[in-house]
Amino acid sequence: MAMDPAIVKAFALTGTLRASINLGNPILANRDAQTGEPFGVSIDLARAFAERLGVPLELVVFDTAAQSVEAVSDERADFGFFAVDPKRGETIAFTAPYVLIEGFYLVRDDSPIRSNAQVDDANHRVAVGKGSAYDLFLTRELKAAQIVRAPTSPAVVQTFLDQQLEVAAGVKQQLEADAAKAGGLRLLDERFMVIRQAMGVAKSRGEAAAEALRAFVEEMKRSGFVAGALERHGIRGASVAPAD
């Protein structure tokens, strides 16, 4: 897929392609403990896209999804990696998803809550990562339960424990890892949402840029690049999204 020079210019306004990277979702992006360098599926895709455009890449790294979305919306970054959400879609043009991730609820072992339907109760407080995809989703969906926002997604379980909340919500793999460390916690038996991870560009960059990014994502899924990245980084419990 050769890129038109006008598309290259639409993305790399400064001559360098700036990728907004969210470290709040460790399924897709992490920081190397020794070097401090970001790595993961998102970074692999960012490098492949910069190579396709024929421009150098700069990683603009954030701790939360909300910060990452704002950077692209404000054009402090040229594109990014986000869960698809209608609120974010006001300023971001999304591709189809490249990875599907499940959102689950976590409770204490002795909690009377046994099903997702029991969560939405006026006596329940639900910890979420501020500005995350599941925060936006549950803000719309929960009618009675109170939402308590942790500063980042990785801080959700600690907030849940520290404030003695009734429920924590988040990405299944993150909750499982945190529950294993803390002990005495369990996931409910069913997901409450499927998080559709996509790439996105500010709508202000134009429809041609958005279409080019959509085509890139479809090629990366079709070629096996995304599946290979998940395997290479040892990601379990996330699946390649079907072709759009």
Results as ranks from 00 to 15, higher is better:
148 V>M: 05
160 F>R: 03
13 L>M: 14
63 D>Y: 09
123 N>P: 01
127 A>T: 07
50 A>F: 12
225 F>P: 04
35 T>H: 03
208 A>L: 02
36 G>V: 00
165 L>E: 09
81 F>D: 07
190 E>K: 15
183 G>K: 01
70 E>V: 11
188 L>P: 04
149 R>Y: 04
240 V>A: 01
229 A>V: 00
205 R>K: 15
161 L>A: 12
148 V>E: 00
3 M>S: 08
89 G>R: 14
20 S>A: 12
122 A>D: 13
23 L>E: 02
226 V>C: 07
172 K>L: 11
144 A>C: 05
172 K>W: 10
219 E>S: 07
206 G>F: 02
204 S>Q: 14
204 S>G: 12
63 D>K: 11
62 F>L: 11
79 F>N: 09
159 T>L: 13
217 V>R: 02
238 A>C: 11
108 R>Y: 10
47 R>A: 14
209 A>C: 06
22 N>R: 10
232 R>F: 08
221 K>T: 08
143 K>Y: 12
61 V>N: 01
114 R>S: 11
30 N>T: 06
145 A>C: 05
30 N>D: 00
129 G>D: 13
45 L>I: 01
50 A>I: 14
47 R>M: 09
204 S>H: 05
203 K>Y: 09
227 A>I: 05
95 T>D: 01
170 G>R: 04
226 V>Y: 08
124 H>R: 13
150 A>D: 09
100 L>C: 07
180 A>D: 09
207 E>N: 03
60 V>P: 03
100 L>G: 08
57 L>A: 05
11 F>W: 12
158 Q>D: 15
240 V>E: 10
96 A>E: 12
167 V>N: 03
137 F>S: 02
68 S>H: 07
78 D>L: 10
140 R>Q: 15
170 G>H: 09
126 V>M: 08
203 K>N: 03
196 R>W: 02
127 A>L: 03
227 A>C: 05
72 V>Q: 03
161 L>G: 02
124 H>W: 11
145 A>T: 04
187 L>T: 10
7 I>E: 00
65 A>Y: 00
94 F>P: 02
21 I>M: 01
192 F>A: 11
76 R>S: 06
237 G>V: 07
8 V>I: 12
228 G>F: 09
115 S>G: 12
190 E>D: 13
28 L>I: 12
139 T>Q: 15
135 D>N: 14
65 A>R: 06
172 K>G: 10
75 E>I: 13
166 E>L: 08
80 G>Y: 11
97 P>D: 09
227 A>M: 03
106 L>P: 03
3 M>F: 04
175 L>W: 10
125 R>E: 13
164 Q>L: 10
10 A>M: 04
1 M>G: 08
67 Q>A: 10
47 R>Q: 14
135 D>L: 12
117 A>Y: 09
13 L>R: 15
